[in-house]
């Protein structure tokens, strides 16, 4: 925990606002894309042991669709757009009017669509964040995987692995009420990025 011990109330609130602004824009983008209202929950900022991060999306073995983007620039980090397998099917149905295939099989078309949705949403998350902080942030080309949440998320924790056993997660969940489609944005800034984010927002770091 030593890494985070100085992250007191104000700083946690700032990070929460970071999630709020980013995900708010992304939710708007999603809502335009599917032409349906999308609601968003108040973001949570938590310092979690690696083990518990996967619990946020149903546990280590829960099968999820995840779009991963590495954030490059002034405040690097990892970003995941995660949706439950059945929510992903519903999203595809709305967008492509496709008859969903069974189980965990996704066609090339479906995967590339989901990946593009992740790309659009992550792009709007990051660009609003970059505007707000005046930091340069650019996402890499998205990668998609349909697999166990634990296996996928551990990938985003490697930078933290060298520092300790906890990671700081900014989690925003959103849902399209009627169809009960639920998804999460996880932003996991690299340990070195916090100071830059705080400094950019004028939060005293000492």
């Amino acid at each position: 925990m030593s890494l985070f011990k100085h992250l007191a109330g104000l700083k946690m609130d700032v990070l929460k606002e970071v999630g709020n602004i980013g995900a708010g824009n992304a939710a708007t983008a999603l809502s335009r894309l599917i032409d349906k209202p999308v609601d968003m929950k108040v973001p949570t900022v938590s310092i979690l042991p690696f083990e518990e991060i996967a619990e946020r999306v149903g546990g280590s073995e829960q099968v999820v669709v995840a779009v991963f983007l590495r954030v490059e620039g002034d405040a690097p980090g990892n970003m995941f757009f995660i949706i439950q397998a059945d929510s992903a099917k519903k999203l595809l149905q709305q967008l492509l009017s496709l008859e969903p295939s069974e189980n965990f099989d996704y066609s090339e078309m479906e995967l590339s669509t989901l990946s593009e949705i992740g790309n659009i949403l992550a792009g709007s998350y990051l660009s609003s964040l970059a505007d707000f902080t005046r930091l340069f942030m650019a996402p890499t080309v998205p990668s998609i995987a349909v697999d166990m949440a634990g296996a996928i998320l551990s990938y985003g924790l490697l930078q933290f692995g060298q520092m300790g056993d906890d990671a700081l997660l900014i989690d925003t969940s959103f849902f399209e009420g009627r169809e009960l489609m639920e998804g999460h944005f996880f932003l996991i800034p690299d340990p070195e990025s916090f100071e830059k984010i705080f400094r950019a927002l004028g939060v005293p770091t000492e």
Partner: peptide, 23 residues
């Protein structure tokens, strides 16, 4: 057995770890 964890077992007990990705 959790992530970044280890353990041993005897007498027919089963050791289990979930969600191995790059680990």
């Amino acid at each position: 057995v959790g992530m970044a964890d280890l353990n041993f077992a005897v007498q027919g007990a089963v050791l289990r770890t979930t969600g191995l990705g790059s680990c």
